[in-house]
Structure formats: structure tokens, C-alpha cells
């Protein structure tokens, strides 16, 4: 029984690791190490309930555990900017580094939000969940989840105004 569980669990983790790690990275504001810790902790919890949720919705379970843990976190991303020896070059249009720069800007902007706002924004716009499901995942009322998401987006509008040009 344990072998069957391990087989299914290992298969799920191997198949969904990349996507889950990206979700964790967004939830942590781009910190790779903390994202991996968050994902590892969530997968350990999943291992113990695999018999219950393994055949139903393991990814939804991991998403909920990660989102709640990230939203509870009181830590702000002070390590968002690390000192480097050389200033990175400015991305040129069509350059390969443009995607990297865009991701870096996004992660830096997400790191400026509060953990709850960040979790609500990521669930709403990356996971494409409706407000009701965002509230369920975060374990809060729908109005609260909607408020977190709208405030987070408003803050991101300010921070990413030069990256995302307004229409017109």
C-alpha cells in the first residue's frame, strides 16, 4: 500500500513540480529558495493525506496549503534586491533577456504587496480562480478576498505602469 502511495505521489510530484514551483515563486514574491521550502512543506503535508486526496484533487490541496501558508507569512521580501557586481544591462526589444527582465520586474512588484494581497492576486490572475474560490482557498470571506485582490492590483498598476502600457 505504501509502495502504491509512493508511486502515485512520486508521479504526481514529478509531473507537477515545475508548475507548482512557479506558483510558489509567485506566492513568495520571486524568492526561489523560499518558494522551494514552501513547496516542500506543502508536499510533505500532501504525502500524509495522499490516501484521501491523491485520487481526487492533489493539486488543489497543494495550492490551498501553499496559498494559506504564504498569506499567513508575516515576512516581507527584504531580500528582493540583492547586491550584484555589475548592473544588468537594459533589455532591448526582442532580446532574450527581455523575458527575464519582465519576470524580474513582476516578481519585484509582487514582493511589494502584503502576503494576503499577493496570494489573492496570484490566485485570481495566475490560477484564474473566481473570487469565491479565492476566498475558499484563503479561508476568508468573499468580500475580504475581493478586497485583497483589488488592492493588490491597484498597487501593481502603480508599480508596473512603465512595463504595461495603458491602451490608447
Amino acid at each position: 500500500m505504501r509502495r502504491a502511495r509512493d508511486g502515485g505521489f512520486d508521479g504526481f510530484v514529478a509531473a507537477r513540480w515545475s508548475a507548482l514551483l512557479h506558483l510558489a515563486r509567485l506566492l513568495t514574491g520571486g524568492d526561489r529558495h523560499r518558494a522551494e521550502d514552501l513547496l516542500q512543506e506543502s508536499l510533505v503535508k500532501l504525502w500524509f493525506v495522499w490516501a484521501k486526496v491523491g485520487e481526487e484533487a492533489p493539486e488543489a490541496y497543494v495550492r490551498q496549503v501553499m496559498a494559506r501558508a504564504a498569506a499567513r507569512s508575516a515576512r516581507r521580501r527584504w531580500w528582493g534586491e540583492r547586491p550584484v557586481e555589475q548592473v544588468p544591462e537594459v533589455a532591448l526589444p526582442g532580446d532574450v533577456s527581455a523575458a527575464v527582465a519582465e519576470r524580474s520586474r513582476l516578481e519585484t512588484a509582487l514582493a511589494q504587496l502584503t502576503p494576503k494581497q499577493r496570494a489573492a492576486v496570484v490566485l485570481r490572475y495566475y490560477q484564474d480562480l473566481p473570487d469565491r474560490q479565492v476566498a475558499e482557498v484563503l479561508g476568508c470571506p468573499v468580500g475580504t478576498a475581493r478586497s485583497h485582490a483589488s488592492r493588490g492590483v491597484a498597487r501593481l498598476r502603480q508599480l508596473l505602469s512603465d512595463v504595461i502600457e495603458p491602451v490608447g
Binding site: 519576470r103 490572475y125 495566475y126 508596473l160
Partner: peptide, 23 residues
């Protein structure tokens, strides 16, 4: 438009990360 671009940025920023032996 901003929200659409935000969703696109979040999805396009995903990079493939294999489940390594260390992990």
C-alpha cells in the same frame, strides 16, 4: 487591459524546472 497583461506576465514568466534528485 492591465489585468490581462498581468495574467499574461504571470504565465509567461514560468520556466521549466525539473524535479531533480536533490529535491
Amino acid at each position: 487591459h492591465f489585468e490581462e497583461q498581468l495574467a499574461r506576465m504571470m504565465r509567461s514568466s514560468q520556466e521549466y524546472a525539473p524535479f531533480e534528485l536533490r529535491q
